[in-house]
């Protein structure tokens, strides 16, 4: 069970300074808007923290475009904001870190074939809950989520949205318990990011003979021929001998997945 509270806290409190700037081609006023600075939680999602960014920039764009859905760009790529913020950062910025993180804001030409439309908070919530359900299906065949009440689901979401650690973990701890007859999950919910996508696979936390699998074991199951890769998550490089059951309990994002970025 996830019992190392200090680590859970530390992970929860991870934040990134971001500098948002409106695409100069979309400024329709004579005066350029000031950039907008924000400290954002790594565990949150951009659509949950950018209301103020929208408000700050919208009056500088063509009035006809002010109501269009805002989107974000980093380094020429639309930001995949259905990933948690920390995942986007580890994935796009990696080890060559320069802070604040410069992100360009757009109101025009939404890249609808590339990124999700999050027109309301309910849609972000639906995405988040779908991830939690999938993770619980991997860990407990979906039995914990389905035994919860709607208010528990709501508490997870509101806890994340309002940055309330205790509120979130009061419910999330149930999702992090191993089944009563075992001390580990059925499979480890994880995504291993590389190139332009990620890999998912059914990986058990223990070997056939009952040994706890490590991060190294997980990587070897996915890349049998490349044992020497490094993994980044929450901005750090965890040791390869870390047991994946422990990682799943302590280093998962609120969506209950481990998001592991391959370092090249």
């Amino acid at each position: 069970m996830a019992n190392d509270r200090e680590i859970l806290r530390e992970i929860w409190e991870g934040k990134l300074p971001v500098c948002f700037q409106l695409d100069p081609n979309e400024v329709s006023e004579l005066q350029q808007p000031d950039p907008f600075f924000l400290m954002v939680p790594r565990l949150s999602y951009f659509p949950l923290v950018t209301d103020k960014v929208r408000k700050h920039f919208s009056r500088y764009v063509d009035p006809e475009k002010q109501e269009q859905e805002m989107w974000l760009e980093y380094d020429g790529q639309p930001v995949k904001w259905h990933f948690p913020i920390g995942v986007v950062f580890d994935l796009y910025v990696g080890s060559d870190i320069q802070l604040p993180w410069n992100i360009t804001v757009h109101f025009d030409k939404f890249p609808e074939s590339q990124i999700f439309r999050f027109s309301t908070k309910e849609i972000v919530e639906a995405h988040f809950m779908a991830c939690i359900k999938e993770a619980d299906f991997l860990k407990h065949r979906g039995q914990v989520v389905s035994s919860m009440q709607k208010k528990d689901h709501n508490q997870l979401w509101v806890g994340l949205q309002n940055d309330k650690f205790d509120q979130f973990w009061a419910v999330n701890r149930k999702l992090m318990e191993a089944p009563s007859d075992q001390d580990h999950f059925k499979y480890i919910p994880f995504r291993l990011y590389m190139d332009d996508g990620y890999k998912q696979k059914l990986i058990k936390p223990i070997t056939e003979d009952g040994r706890r699998k490590t991060l190294h074991d997980l990587i070897t199951e996915i890349f049998p021929n490349q044992p020497n890769v490094k993994i980044r998550t929450h901005g750090m490089v965890p040791p390869m001998e870390t047991p994946i059951q422990w990682m799943s309990e302590h280093l998962s994002y609120p969506d209950n997945f481990l998001h592991l970025c391959l370092q090249v």
């Binding site: 259905h82 074939s113 590339q114 999700f116 439309r117 849609i123 779908a130 996508g197 990620y198 998912q200």
Partner: peptide, 12 residues
């Protein structure tokens, strides 16, 4: 029914 990532194409 919502947008999800296509597991192969990785697009919404």
């Amino acid at each position: 029914l919502t947008q999800m990532e296509h597991p192969v194409l990785m697009k919404p």
